[in-house]
Design a binder for these strands. Sequence first.
RNA 1: AGCCUCAUAGUUCAACGGAUAGAAUAGAAGUUUCCUAAACUUUAGAUCCAGGUUCGAUUCCUGGUGAGGCUACCA
Length: 595
Amino acid sequence: MNISEKIEQSVIKGAFESYGVQLAKVEFVPTRNDFEGDTTVVVFSMLKLIKDNPEQIGQTLGQYLVDALEEIKSFNVVKGFLNISFTDAYFLHTFTTTYTQTHFGFATPNSKEAVVVEYSSPNTNKPLHLGHVRNNLLGYAVAKILEASGRKVYKTQIINDRGIHICKSMLSWKKFGNKETPESTGLKGDSLVGKYYVAFDKVYKEEISAMLAQGISLETAEKEAPILMEAQKMLRLWESGDPETVSLWKTMNAWVYKGFEETYKRLGVSFDSYYYESDTYLLGKDVVAQGIENGVFFKREDGSVWIDLTDDGLDEKIVLRSDGTAVYMTQDIGTAIQRVADFPDVSGMVYTVGNEQDYHFKVLFLILKKLGFSWAQQLFHLSYGMVDLPSGKMKSREGTVVDADDLITEMADTAASISEDLGKLTGYTTAEKQSLFQMIGLGALKYYILKVDPKKRILFDPKESVDFQGNTGPFIQYTYARIQSILRKANFDTSLIPSFDGEESFLHEKEVALLKQLFLFPETVQLAAQNYSPALIANYTYDLVKEFNSFYQNVSILGESNEDLKIFRVALSKKVAQVIQDSFGLLGIEVPERM
RNA sequence: AGCCUCAUAGUUCAACGGAUAGAAUAGAAGUUUCCUAAACUUUAGAUCCAGGUUCGAUUCCUGGUGAGGCUACCA
């Protein structure tokens, strides 16, 4: 039983003994810094049951708690807030029991609660950009957080490898590519393919302009530009299995995959399985057929199949075209069912997809529920805001994108120049430095993106580089490195925490503040998992590090003459470092030994 | 037009319905014979507007205003 539960029970008991009232629960709130105390009980909510003034109730219950629980040192009441202070012995005891836990705060795995986390899911016609970076970081972090909260997680993605977009790149390469390859040009495969996607669009626009000059309407021109017609012809060839087209498709997709893998590796994300749209786009058609029989779907005269969601406040939605071909929704229905079949222990799924598809997922989840799948209750759309530039939305066709690879390189360069200026890396080899700069640069970028609530949109200004000072990844990495420096110098045994027997007061206020923040980690992990929010982990870690730095600056650790205190402080620092490492691990951010 | 999301210091972000709305950054002022100054300590500065529910509202409800998104037999 933790301390909050103990206090709750005592308050309930105290209220019953003093007032004859049975409280259902007790409301806690963190004690504000301006007041003395370590936790606060809100008395106001009891007023409906207890007929007394809040001040008096607080006094009565506070006294009851001090008498009942040895962990409680004192209390004070301010305007109906009962502030409670714990004894140093309580803090020390709690610290001692958590000290030896290797991943303090992580729940023990429960394999029954398996979940699929889908993220990334790119198109194969262009390189990854900043928007994908947010997707990847979020998806990966949420997967790690769910794991830490005790669930079994399968990370997966569906690759959009088929459709008109890749045909555009293919056609453009065929026409203007001069048989270029990643090898012949030295370009990453995804960049090379993306180059021809942009080239396609250039010609397409030129053709439209020419047609407009001939007096053709914009609408017609957009639909009937020759190069577009040619791309559509190519898509039909692909669908009919034309060997040459399929072969080119395979070649160019392979280039892209190789490029993606490099970027994933640099970003530090990974997947347990991959789904390809070319394999799954026909899935779901059988389900649609069954759904018609069950009356979930209905067929129009032209042969198209629909679902009527007007009773649920949505509209009618098509699930199969009149020519019998699948739409996106059909395939998503099929893929969801396929995944549950592939991972039999799975009871839920998380889809990491931008908020422009909120409506799509609302409809998808509703359809799956109507089809009667029990797991359909456990689907979550991890919807996140777009990453916009000051000039507006990123558009790959117009070249206004922040390329993921370029961005990572720039971040590492910035880290390098700051580091070299500070000049703390004597003795490091060039290779060690390179890897450190990459770690710091990525730390800055990842933290910058993950500390923001996923559902909010991010405005990214490439001119104002991501910060390395203040509430940033490098600040937290720096604190970790500082602690490592202390640990390297502390060549004495810290495996046993001193007991401070017979001493009532031995903790510095900075130590108390730090311990309180440390103890919040387990519930923060659970909260982050429940809310699918890496931002909660990021903000927690920042608060912990702020608290540590204040402690570090105000309290001497290795310089402390009292041996017991010195050992305790080193142990406390060590635990803080472990939690920084673990929490940053949940965000996919590494921490350095030195920086 | 309908539906969805968002709106907090100059800027970027916080705040289970709780106390005097927290940080960072930019601004002002300090801290290095001392464990890494990418740090610490002061300081000034904000809840879009109008109602409502509540002991208590940045948070919940209604109506405005502003920004973004979605309303394809595209993916």
